[in-house]
Every structure is written in C-alpha cells, then in structure tokens.
Write a protein that binds this DNA or RNA. Structure first.
Lengths: 348, 348
DNA sequence: AATCAAAATGTTATCGATATCATTTCGCGT
DNA sequence: ACGCGAAATGATATCGATAACATTTTGATT
C-alpha cells in the first residue's frame, strides 16, 4: 500500500464559506481580561500560569476574574506558540476480534490509567486506530502509545521511523530498543506453578496459544517453575474463548491414559470452558482437577465456582505507560518495565 | 464540590525554560514549500486543501512536493485561525464498575465507530472521563459525546449548560431536548417476547434492575408484547453479574409453586448465571426452561449451551453518534434515534 | 533624601496557518 | 493587436497565546 499524498479535508474555503456552525457568542481572550483588570495581557498569561513573576495578589485577582467571566484558554493558540500539540495519540484496536489474546475490557482499563495520568499532566489523549494513524491530528501528536499490537510487527516499525516518542504495551523483545510496558507474564506463570506445587499436583495441562508472545512467556515461566515437580502437557487452542477451552479439555478427557490433576489456562474464558468440560464428565473441581485462569476478568470472581486466576493491574499499567511517555517527552531516561501479577486464589 | 478557579499547569515559563524535549529537526511550513515551488504560501494552502482556485497542475505539483518533503500540517495553527478545535471530547467511564449495566466491551465498540467516523471527517477524538472534564483540552472541544452516563443526571445537565453540541448514548427521556442515540430496548424486549410466544411459553421471568432506564424499556416492551399470552414475574437483582443471575433463579427455584418456563435476562451474564442455577436443579435448557440474554457479548455464542441473546449494533451506534455530532456542529437539524436490535436465536 | 538592585509589569515579535482584498495572467471575441 | 471579464495568484492582516527584551516600580541601604 503506497502512502498517499497529503490532501486535507475541505474544512473551509475562502471562496465559498459554507460553515454554518461558527460560534456567535464572543469568546473572552486574555486581552479582554487584561483590559478588565487594568493590566497587560502578558500579566494575565503569567498569572493564570501561576508564575512567580507576578505578585500573589495580582495572580489571585486575575484568577478570580477569569473564573467569574468564565474565561477559557485557547489551547490552539498556546500550542502554536509553544510548538507542541500537548497531545498523545493512543492506537487501539476497537473492532471486535475473534480470539483476541486478552479479555475484552482490558483496553478500557489501560485507557483509563493513561487518560488519568496524561490529562492530569496537561496532555490530551487522542484516540485512534491502526487504520487512521496517518491523519493530521494523529501525526501532530507529541507522542504515541500502542496498545494490543504487540511490541514488534510492522505497526511498531512504521511508527518508530517517525522519531516520535513511542511506548508500547506488550511483551518485551530481547534485542529491541523499544520502550515496552506490560504485565510480567513469566512471573504470572510461575505463580500458577507454585500454587499447583503447594497443592501437590504433578500432572499439569497448559492451555493457550503459545504463538502469542505474552502467552509464550506465561507458559515458559510455568514450565520452568514446575521443573522437577511434575509434567506439563501443552495444548494449543487457536482462540481464547470458552468454547475453545471446552473443546480442548473434552477431547483430552476422551483419550485414555491422559490423566491430569491441574489446568493452567491463558485466559479466564478458556479456564471456564475447561471447568465446564470437566463438570460434564463428572470430574470435580478442585477435588479431582485444579484450574487456574488468567486476567481475573470481572466474571471470574462471580463464576460458579469462583475461579482462581492471575490478576493483572491494567489500570496501573496504563498509568505507567503514561509516565514513561511523559518522561520520554521530557527527555528523561526511560526503560521498559514489567508489572507484577497476583494470583487471586479462589475455589478452583 | 465548588468549581475551582482556572489554573493551568506550569507548562512553560519565560523566566526559566526547563523543557528538555524541544524538537530540533526543522519542521517544514507552508512558507518553505512555497519557496521551493516558487509560489506564495497561500497558494500552497489552497493547493493542499484541493481548492478549485488553484490550477489542477499547480495543485498536483504542490501535493507531490509536500509528499516528497514529508510536510505535515500544523493543526494548531489551522485551528487557531479557524477558531475551532476540530476535536470532539468523548466522556467514558474507564474504571471497572461492579454491576455495570452493560457488558464490558461495549464502550470500546462504540468508541470504534465514533473514532472512525469523526477522524474520517477531520476531527480528532479526545478521550476523557467525568472527573477530568474541566480540563482545557476538553473544554476547548467543539462538541461532546457522553457514553454510559445515561441521558439524564447531573453530568448531562452540567454539560448542556455549556452550550456545546452534545450527544448522549442511552435511553431517550420523554420531555427532554437532549439528542440521544441508543439501542431500541423496547423492541429488544418485544423480540424476546415474540420468541417465547412462538415457543408456547407462558410463565415468564424477567431478570434485571428496572431502575436503569434502558432495562426499564426492555422490561416494558417485553411485558406489553406478552400481554394476553402469559404472565411475567419480575425479579430485580442489583447487579448484572453471573452471580446475581445465579442467586435470583436459585432462590426462585426453592420457593414452591413458582413454576416458570422462560427467563428473559437484561444481560448475558445474568442469563448464564440463570442457566447455571437451572442446571444445578436438574432443569433442562431449553426443554424445561427457555432463556434469552441481552447484549450478545462475545461469550454468548461460545457459552455451553450457546446462548440465545438480543444483539445490539454498537459499532453502528458509535457511527450514528458521530454523525449526529457532525450534523449538530454544522448546524443541521438533528433528532434522537434508536437503533434496531436482532434476536440471535441459538440453543437456549 | 538619594541611590540602585530586585521585583513587577509592559511592549513588541512570533508561532503557522487562512480570509480578505488586490493584482496579475489568461483566453477569447472583435 | 486590443480590450475585457474570468481565472489564477499574491500581499497583508489576523487568530490568541507566550518569549524576549524593555521599562517602571519597589524598597532597602546609605
């Protein structure tokens, strides 16, 4: 796909002005406030920015005036002067994708953390998708955050070339210099293994598509930690759904000689499907088989029986992504970072 | 909570300039392109906007030049001149809320539709939450879209006072002049009733918190359509979870003389919980009791058994929200609109 | 009271685009 | 070739804020 030449939407035209929505109410400017307060506009500017160059009294007076008058900063003017957009573009996949690697609400929680942190720091969060990245507002951003694309692949490569500060959510890639924030999937796998070891389980099944970097990590941590304590049989459903988990465990139960006493699934839905399959064969959870899920989605705790699952702190992840971005934009040194996970022990 | 006076983050200060991230590469302006092309900058401006005031050849020449040079429009400058921000703020609740009225992925799908439509129209989508609404970038938006707050309540009232174009996702309120886009919950209820009538079911249970306007509509449509064909017993769980559905139906089954042959739940999770409760009492679904859910969440189709559910076209809803917003901003007449729903008949 | 540095405030230029109005170029008929 | 209206292009002002530099005010010290 060749990149197309820049053509802007005909947002306006000096020949025939057809915009019907020009706001008629007079909008206050700093100039106006300045006249009212009997000072110059630069003093107003400084006062509203809480600059020490202005007396405390003057500052307070102008702040009050601004509030009374309902003054609102013209962000475009400031950004133009400051030569920055004070915005960060966040690339999210917002189309429902079958077999999405993580449970559905996860991007929203990340977004919540990102938005809170960036907005508080004076930046605006511009939402976009992979398909819309080459539009003007996105290209004008001061930085970019990628969610759900993985830390490699073309999307990242393309963006890296722009030279914009870039932070990615996902699993870190060994030789790469891209800043990545993610859950520590390896430790998540280890924590599941430890739980099984404590319970004396020794014939385990790992359920998940190890083609995904994050799942790969979970599996690796799990196997390493189980080493010497038991065997791990890997099953690779293509999707992350209830159905896939159900099918995998059902077929496994049909084969004779394939006894197991524990299942570690790469998503809660897989785990739920597995439990359902076990129930149909009259296997008891956790008496006969113990099951651990991943993500600790809202449904996990209220599942029957309540599902033991590896919890990720996604909102914190969002906050961390935002902090890294702020550091990058301020020229501070930044390194990739993985967040801890917690095994939420419930009844399975 | 009193509204606080406007104080802007100390983004800069003319006394001590501590920003470390000023981009050093020279950024091309229209002026630069103009010099290269041997024309004036206004011609460049017109050419890039595809104005008929410029010869087709000149337009093409400048477009190519701009592409070669990697020129990028300075959005702040344009917005300042045009006296508009060309951005729309979208208010979303991004914190996990127990008992959220709709299933989790729904805001993301809506966001996808909104983003696609607005970005294509040259607007940027600024993400925000209720708590962050009074920040500069949000207040500078040309319009606001509210998701998940309902069409009444203080949030809407506050926003309406600002005079900004406002569009809300939810259920319409009779006397209100707010533009609302939503699913036609009433018809969703009707479609569930029709299904039960076809199947000859006559003793129904409605499961859902009718305090929510949207659920109220579903229930009303359901009851009206059932009128003369059977009875409806309303149960009001406080949450929309699996657990709540499980508990409601369990307790109902314990009472004697409370036979029923159909359940219409206000969410898929409630429906799944209901099915689970029925299974525990050895009631067969759908032979003894037929169950219909709402939302048709990704998990519904892969549930065991596959869940019959009322599907909402959320992405389309997002697109529609965006279109209404564009119309409002262009001064075109706009009316509220409800989207159709479809009953996805599966095995329950 | 005079002096002078520090504090407070003001003046002017600037960011990069577009609207308005002015000017030049083009095409065509006579 | 000339003239004239239409088409194409250009010069200047402007949007609302902040930086850099200039000026005035303050107050402490002699």
């Amino acid at each position: 796909m060749r990149s197309h030449p820049p053509v802007f939407n005909p947002l306006s035209d000096d020949a025939l002005n057809k915009t019907g929505a020009r706001r008629t109410e007079t909008v206050l400017t700093m100039e106006d406030l300045a006249k009212m307060a009997g000072v110059s506009k630069i003093t107003v500017s400084r006062a509203l920015r809480d600059s020490p160059l202005v007396t405390v009294e003057t500052r307070e007076k102008i702040r009050q005036l601004a509030e009374e008058q309902g003054y609102r900063l013209n962000v475009s003017a400031r950004n133009l002067r400051m030569r920055r957009s004070y915005s960060v573009a966040v690339v999210v996949e917002m189309t429902p994708v079958k077999g999405r690697p993580m449970s559905d609400p996860y991007p929203l929680e990340l977004l919540g953390g990102i938005t809170q942190e960036l907005t508080t720091a004076g930046y605006s969060v511009v939402l976009t998708s992979k398909q819309l990245m080459d539009t003007a507002p996105v290209q004008g951003a001061d930085g970019m955050i990628l969610l759900g694309q993985g830390s490699h692949g073309e999307a990242v490569r393309t963006l890296q070339k722009t030279g914009l500060p870039l932070v990615v959510w996902g699993a870190p890639e060994p030789g790469s210099d891209i800043i990545v924030v993610g859950s520590d999937n390896r430790k998540g796998g280890v924590s599941a293994a430890q739980r099984f070891i404590e319970q004396g389980r020794s014939k385990l099944v790992f359920l998940g598509d190890v083609d995904h970097a994050e799942v790969q990590e979970r599996c690796a941590g799990f196997i390493d930690a189980m080493n010497g304590h038991g065997t791990v049989h890997i099953m690779r459903p293509k999707a992350f759904t209830f159905e896939a988990g159900f099918d995998c465990i059902s077929s496994l139960l049909k084969k004779k000689g394939s006894a197991f006493d524990g299942v570690f699934a790469a998503s809660d839905l897989l785990a739920m499907g597995a439990i359902r399959a076990l129930a149909e064969k009259n296997m008891r959870v956790p008496e006969n088989v113990s099951v651990i899920g991943y993500d600790d989605t809202p449904g996990a705790a209220s599942f029957v029986p309540p599902l033991t699952s590896v919890h990720q702190y996604l909102r914190d992840g969002g906050v961390l992504l935002a902090r890294k971005m702020l550091d990058l934009m301020n020229g501070n040194p930044v390194a990739s970072e993985m967040l801890p996970t917690t095994l939420m022990v419930r009844q399975t």
